[in-house]
């Protein structure tokens, strides 16, 4: 009996479920004992940048004042949508943030959709989502310092009452943390559940993975990009001092 159990365990181990972090491709350099690696996420992000560059060049090629082609109409629709979202959520005076929000939306959406090409989503790596959240964190601080000046910036931390200071500071760091973990968690959950389904079905993985991929790779991908920009916008505009 123990033999049968051991054989079953060995068979299970041979077909091991592989859900690793992003692959390390090559070691770049070392700073004070910390190794800096070129990871899979970086390389997939290069692919994302190439796709974005190609799409931008195709859409904005040969533009006219009155749109004649469908390409230009599509590009204008996209820009219009983001501009309306920014104006509706943040207000007219934050129109200068439209390019940043647009970049964020396109970049995160294409990154999330990379799963469709069989590549690993760069957003399933906490260092990528963390970077995006840190940019938003600095924009929040910038907007607060800009609207409140020196005095208002520090005064906003002791409002409404001075004993709220620690909670305000924790809240300041919890927002970008939650922002990064939300995108990372959603994309990683999709990746893990996808590989679990392939692992469980083995050679019979025919229709079911397609259905779950529709949700995790397409719906969730677009939704999370939209949620990321909506939350970024509301964090930035709510940092305003009055």
């Amino acid at each position: 009996m123990p033999n049968a159990l051991m054989l079953a365990a060995e068979a299970a181990a041979a077909k091991e479920l592989e859900v690793n972090g992003a692959l390390k491709v090559a070691k770049l350099f070392e700073i004070g004992g910390t190794e800096i690696w070129l990871t899979e996420s970086v390389i997939v992000q290069w692919v994302v940048m190439l796709i974005l560059l190609a799409v931008i060049l195709i859409l904005t090629h040969n533009m006219k004042v009155v749109p004649e082609t469908k390409r230009q109409a599509a590009a204008e629709m996209l820009v219009e949508f983001v501009r309306n979202t920014v104006n509706g959520t943040m207000g007219e005076k934050y129109g200068a943030y439209t390019p940043y929000i647009m970049t964020l939306l396109c970049y995160i959406m294409i990154s999330n959709l990379m799963g469709l090409l069989g590549l690993r989503n760069p957003t399933a790596d906490v260092s990528v989502t963390g970077t995006l959240a840190i940019i938003t964190f600095f924009l929040v601080q910038y907007n607060r310092a800009k609207t409140g000046k020196f005095k208002g910036y520090f005064k906003s931390f002791v409002e409404p009452l001075p004993f709220m200071l620690p909670f305000n500071i924790i809240g300041e760091f919890a927002n970008p943390l939650a922002l990064a973990l939300r995108l990372f968690g959603n994309m990683t959950a999709g990746l893990v559940i996808g590989s679990l389904i392939y692992f469980a079905l083995g050679n019979f993985a025919l229709v079911i993975p397609a259905v779950t991929s529709l949700y995790f790779d397409i719906f969730s991908a677009v939704m999370q990009a939209y949620i990321f920009i909506m939350l970024s916008m509301s964090y930035i505009s709510s940092a305003e001092c009055d």
Binding site: V192, M230, S234
Partner: peptide
């Protein structure tokens, strides 16, 4: 959608802990 995203946060913290423990 924003409310959903905020309600989801605690669940994602738990998911990150679970993923850490597994992988």
């Amino acid at each position: 959608i924003i409310g959903d995203a905020l309600a989801e946060t605690t669940g994602l913290y738990a998911l990150v802990i679970a993923l850490l423990l597994l992988y």
